[in-house]
């Protein structure tokens, strides 16, 4: 079977969950081959093996991560030329999509972004992707019709399944070209951890919007989130007001989430917000305006002031847990 290249998404060898999802998807399409770029492979090794990587291409030159995107695209193109894979899978992050874009030009191949599912085509045809478009109002099936399919896949597109393998390691000698060394990363500050579940991976998300009213008041959103073991999200209005960091924004220009339960507090439900949470299984809304569009899509809604409804809910959950 042909190789399916999976670009490993990691920071210093700490493999992100999305990569295990990609390896799981890759097994549907062919033989998974991980491409590890940067430092920290020793830490990543076992994870890649247990999720079925038959092969690992290793490019450990530290220069590869000193510059934005271009060096990784170059390294991946080199592997693609060597391995002639049947498809190339990347995480649908800003970086993943940009690497995919540059790769598509280098390989003159088709690129599909933001897949929420990828399956093998019928009769050995290339992979078929599913995407959610127009703020989640449409579901589209698409294919790459020319060149090696390059596909970026959203978090949670598959449930990671282990399939232990003993990968063959192949070290790559990639010297980063001068052209790829033009946008230098001069500073990198890791985001501080909150101790809460990751927004895109959480089973429950509690989000606050303009109705929260201030940065301090986000404490009521956080308290409910903690009682539920949930991640905290925010609307753009709340982020723009400086009440909550952009990393937690849900919507078109923030994160897409698809949890089991999404609680929207003080959020009106604008199309750009819906784009990021419309596919949640259950939606609960708290809003003081009975006409707010968010109620049209909520499975359960409370018309009321979030500053009283949320603390009461938090207390009720704590009491129920206690008894």
């Amino acid at each position: 079977m042909a190789e399916i290249l999976v670009l490993v998404d990691h920071s210093d060898g700490a493999v992100r969950k999305t990569t295990t999802e990609l390896l799981t998807i890759a097994r549907r399409l062919g033989d998974p081959a991980a491409v590890f770029i940067g430092s920290g492979y020793e830490r990543a090794k076992d994870t890649l093996a247990s999720f079925g990587a038959q092969k690992v291409y290793l490019a450990e030159d530290p220069e590869l991560t000193d510059y934005l995107v271009a060096p990784k695209a170059e390294a991946l193109a080199l592997v693609a030329e060597r391995a002639t894979p049947a498809a190339i899978l990347l995480t649908s992050s800003a970086e993943g999509k940009e690497i995919a874009g540059r790769l598509a030009i280098k390989l003159d191949a088709g690129v599909l972004t933001d897949a929420v599912d990828v399956v093998a085509g019928e009769n050995g045809g290339g992979p078929v992707t599913t995407q959610s478009v127009f703020a989640g109002n449409y579901t589209v099936e698409a294919k790459v019709t020319r060149g090696t399919p390059i596909i970026t896949v959203k978090p949670n597109a598959a449930t990671p399944e282990q399939a232990p393998a003993q990968p063959v390691e192949e070290k790559l000698d990639v010297a980063v070209s001068d052209q790829a060394k033009t946008a230098r990363v001069v500073e990198r500050t890791a985001r501080t951890q909150t101790g809460r579940p990751d927004l895109t991976e959480a089973a429950i998300v509690v989000s606050g919007g303009r109705g929260v009213g201030s940065a301090e008041n986000f404490a009521v959103v956080e308290a409910l989130a903690d009682a539920l073991g949930a991640a905290v999200g925010a609307s753009r209005a709340a982020v723009d007001s400086g009440w909550y960091p952009h990393a937690y924004q849900v919507g078109q220009t923030g994160k897409t989430v698809s949890p089991q339960l999404y609680v929207a507090a003080g959020i009106s439900g604008a199309i750009q917000h819906r784009a990021g949470m419309q596919t949640s299984r259950t939606i609960v809304a708290v809003n003081k305006d009975a006409e707010a569009p968010i109620f049209e899509m909520a499975d359960f809604g409370v018309v009321g002031d979030l500053h009283t409804v949320l603390p009461q809910a938090t207390q009720e959950i704590t009491e129920r847990k206690g008894s």
Binding site: Y138, E141, K143, E296, V309
Partner: peptide, 29 residues
């Protein structure tokens, strides 16, 4: 180099129960 094979409109989400908070909204939630 890519083609949309098919597109389907997602059925709109159905509105569920909406209650008005009369002092018990959090507990109802």
């Amino acid at each position: 180099r890519t083609a949309v094979a098919s597109y389907t409109q997602r059925p709109p989400r159905q509105q569920g129960t909406v209650v008005t908070d009369d002092g018990d909204g959090g507990r109802a939630l």
